[in-house]
Amino acid sequence: MRLGGRTAGLCYALAAGTIGVLSLSGCFTERQNEGAQLYTTHCASCHGDQGQGLERLIPPVAGTDYVARHRAELPCLIRKGLKGPLVVNGVEYNQVMPGHEDLTDSQITNLLNFLQTNWGNQNQPYTIREASELLGRCNGSDGQ
């Protein structure tokens, strides 16, 4: 069946639009899961695959008061690490946490948003602007 010029053009435009939307949805899906992937790569070996921590050695990140109460410090904690004691859910921990200088501001934002909204944590997600501004306080923002 032969299509007229106008109809054929419309069909090509719709097909191109559909392909474009499918391509974009793949990008968003990948970025949407980035926080979980980053957690698995950079955090799970210490904090556990479900954020449960390790006894009284390494604090949990699942269902913790610390994630909610220390929102402003969390971006720098991920970028620069932590030395010294902290209290999570009433338990004191005092281990060294390495920093992750290799992560971009965007990756830190996605990682934090994964923590903020999973495993019983029901906190407000970060915007990239907020995370970058907070990282600026510890000279940790890379502007990306």
Rank of each mutant, 00 (worst) to 15 (best):
C27W: 06
T104R: 02
D142A: 06
F28I: 14
S106R: 11
R6C: 09
L74Y: 00
V91H: 06
G81C: 10
I58V: 15
Y126F: 12
C11D: 05
T29Q: 15
Q37N: 11
R6G: 01
D105R: 04
G9S: 07
Y66D: 04
Q32L: 12
D49I: 15
L86K: 04
G9L: 11
S106D: 13
L111Q: 03
T64W: 00
T40F: 02
G20Y: 14
H100T: 07
D102K: 06
L134M: 14
V88L: 07
T109M: 10
I58M: 04
N33Q: 04
A16H: 03
L82P: 00
H100A: 07
E34Q: 07
R129G: 10
R31H: 05
A131K: 08
C76L: 04
L24E: 13
I108M: 11
L14G: 02
L135N: 09
C43I: 10
L134T: 09
L10E: 11
A44M: 05
P59D: 12
R137H: 12
E130F: 01
L10G: 10
H47I: 15
A15K: 05
V87D: 10
L134V: 07
S132L: 05
L24S: 10
L3G: 06
G140A: 05
Q95F: 04
F114Y: 15
L77F: 03
Q32T: 13
T29N: 11
A44P: 10
P125N: 11
Y126Q: 00
P98S: 03
L82R: 08
D102T: 11
L134D: 09
W119V: 00
N121V: 02
Q107K: 06
C76T: 05
I58Q: 04
A68Q: 06
K83I: 13
L134I: 12
V88N: 06
W119L: 00
P98T: 11
I78G: 09
K80A: 14
R137I: 01
Y39T: 00
E73T: 07
R6M: 09
E55K: 02
G120A: 09
N118T: 00
R2E: 14
A8T: 14
G9H: 07
Q122H: 10
R2D: 13
L112Q: 12
V87N: 05
Q107P: 08
Q144T: 15
R79E: 13
V21Y: 15
T29H: 14
N89V: 09
T117M: 11
E101I: 02
L115H: 01
V91T: 14
L22T: 14
G26E: 13
S23G: 08
